[in-house]
Design a protein around this nucleic acid. Structure first.
Lengths: 208, 208
DNA sequence: GAAAAACTTGACTGAATGGTCAAAATGTAG
DNA sequence: CTACATTTTGACCATTCAGTCAAGTTTTTC
């Protein structure tokens, strides 16, 4: 049985990958409750019992997908460099997050949905790992402010502001597209958005 | 039958209100698919068939709740005054939206969930009513910029930025609370957040 | 190349849930 | 008070869906 054996076989590696890819699409579109195993199985091109052979419960698939996407999401945040130039570091981070919103909106939506419904599957993660990381980066920002290299703003709210704004373009994609003038929703769209955001944000935190 | 008769009776008025209140809570917590009619009926203190007497389909309850909350959400936006001081108008709007996030987070979450899943119930509304309104306000901002009373930023992205940031405190409440330092999640929390946001945002759009 | 292990699936089960119905209870108009 | 309309509900139905099972097929191992 797949789960009882620690070592993964060749086929297990392949099929788990296929399943997780299909599951990300389905879960991010319909939410946990709104998705069915049949849907995921069909998208993955295998029978339901076969899928359940790899992930015995629906929740197992969901949690695994969620954990994987969390990593993507956090990597650029971890990479904020205390030794770098504050404005430049914030610009870099914001641009990377916008890229994520552009290239992997499903991940963002999956995560948003989880939080929106009270984060039942990742409460602990938020309170331990994520909190630790945010505290660390908030400290970095506080030091930048103390050194006069950034305007005095609450570092936590600054972080939230970047998160909120960048994720908005993935999570609220439908609304953004519905509301934006026609031509604007073109190729350069995410670049334009990033520029606009950065103008406001960086002017807002530049020391004066 | 309740729906065939245009004029609403006393009891209909009362019970529809009770149902919609219960439904907002349930739908915003679990999403459309994740909520059951039984749950709503129990919270409303009546039997399921009785509830279905007032709203024959689950979707009818959902759409009605959603429409009601949309109005709350848009009123302060409509009230942005072209004749007012730009910075002051943006401050006022941002503060009002933060208040909504603080006082009625369920509405915000219900709406976020709907958009996140592709806005199946309000696509048309977004593309017509909301778009018209946003275009109008974007024009107002463009004029402010032309008059040199605001830094030159894309008005649409400015609007999105305010939406994203203010709603974050309702929609991502769980994450915010998990990550913020303990004492900070206190009484003045939303005021602090509003101040931090406004500092960055208004500095970011002040003409220089 | 045979035995064992890993993989795959059609057919099924049981619980949850949206919605129906007919009969009973309550409210209301004259 | 009486007749009529409105409201309420227990019992029920049909469907959807997570998860099981036993029997078959393919892959790996020696």
């Amino acid at each position: 049985m797949a789960s009882s054996n620690n070592k993964r076989t060749r086929i297990q590696g392949i099929n788990r990958g296929i399943i997780l890819e299909a599951a990300l699409e389905v879960f991010s579109t319909y939410g946990f409750r709104g998705s069915t195993i049949d849907q995921i199985a069909e998208k993955a091109g295998m029978s339901k019992p076969n899928l359940l052979y790899y992930f015995p419960r629906k929740e197992d698939i969901y949690v695994t997908v969620l954990e994987n996407t969390l990593e993507d999401w956090l990597t650029p945040f971890r990479d904020i460099d205390p030794a770098g130039d504050p404005i430049e570091e914030l610009r870099k981070y914001t641009v990377l997050k916008m890229k994520l919103s552009a290239l992997r909106p499903e991940s963002s939506r999956l995560f948003a949905n989880e939080i929106l419904h009270g984060a039942p599957a990742i409460q602990d993660f938020l309170k331990s790992n994520l909190k630790r990381l945010v505290d660390e980066k908030a400290n970095v920002i506080s030091e930048w402010i103390a050194e006069g290299r950034l305007a005095p703003v609450d570092p936590y709210h600054l972080i939230f502001m970047i998160w909120a704004t960048t994720q908005h373009y993935a999570d609220f994609d439908v609304q953004v597209r519905a509301v934006m003038p026609e031509q604007t929703t073109q190729a350069s769209f995410f670049d334009d958005a990033a520029n606009a955001i950065l103008t406001i944000l960086l002017n807002g935190v530049k020391p004066r």
